[in-house]
Nucleic acid binder design. Structure first.
Ligand SMILES: [Zn+2]
Ligand SMILES: [Zn+2]
Ligand SMILES: [Zn+2]
Ligand SMILES: [Zn+2]
Lengths: 131, 131
DNA sequence: AATGTGAATGTAATGTTATTACATCAATTG
DNA sequence: CAATTGATGTAATAACATTACATTCACATT
């Protein structure tokens, strides 16, 4: 999935997220795109839905915000659980995969016949630069 | 921490959560406590804040809801990260601790000098009973 | 018992995040 | 050129959470 087959609105939203150095809320994105003709939240949410589906963007559940994927070309949403550190001071987000963690979670679910859907792992705290 | 040193509002909110078989939103709790004199969201949020602080209740970030701790007497919020499975069909929540996962997350953070605060691990999916 | 203090509560208003509903437009295809 | 499908525009509303300020309660000190 490259950025070229995105629609106009999807491209605009992805562009805003790509150029941000911290996660953005849907309404912040909306404000940044007013000059591009965005008028309503739904325009942002619809674009975000698609971008999430494409694996170009992640939603950070613990802060109700969105961030561009750090390695969109590797199809990160297709190979496992993505975990995040989120700096509460500067907003910096780091994305990582850990197969041990993933295996433990899968094992736990399997033991209980729990069918795993989307999994969230988010560590809020303070990054090295802000300590 | 026992339920006895709770204030009236804290006790009412904890009671509602304890007797629920699925997580509840703050506004659902409010509705359930109207007959007990609750009139405004803040009454619920204030009680929840304290209950979270006491480790009697957990907040599920991915669904904006709250659940009573499954083992409040073990001070679960004092010994490590709590992970959850959340059934999207029936709402059933299972709480667990995994030291391997915790160690991996801590190691990742330590490697990057990231100071860990609250950590969220939530698996949404379908429980055995709903499969 | 009176007073002072901090925690908890009551209430209204507002702020923030997300969805529903419905009309319109654009691209594709048979 | 219909017909279908996906995308967009717009308004309204729902759902979740906080700010601000006044009041009351619990309890220790005098
Ligand atoms: Zn990613
Ligand atoms: Zn930082
Ligand atoms: Zn617990
Ligand atoms: Zn279930």
């Amino acid at each position: 999935m490259t950025t070229q087959q995105l629609t106009k609105n999807q491209g605009l939203v992805f562009d805003v997220l790509s150029h941000s150095d911290s996660p953005l809320s849907a309404y912040t994105i909306l404000d940044k795109l007013r000059d591009n003709g965005f008028r309503a939240p739904l325009q942002v949410y619809r674009a975000l839905d698609k971008l999430l589906e494409f694996g170009l963007v992640h939603r950070l559940e613990s802060i109700n915000a969105f961030v561009a994927c750090a390695h969109p070309n590797e199809g990160c949403h297709n190979h496992g659980i993505t975990a995040f550190t989120i700096c509460e001071t500067c907003g910096k987000v780091t994305e990582f995969h850990d197969h041990v963690i993933e295996d433990r979670l899968k094992a736990f679910a399997k033991d209980r016949n729990f069918k795993t859907g989307k999994t969230t792992i988010e560590i809020r705290g303070t990054c090295a630069g802000c300590a």
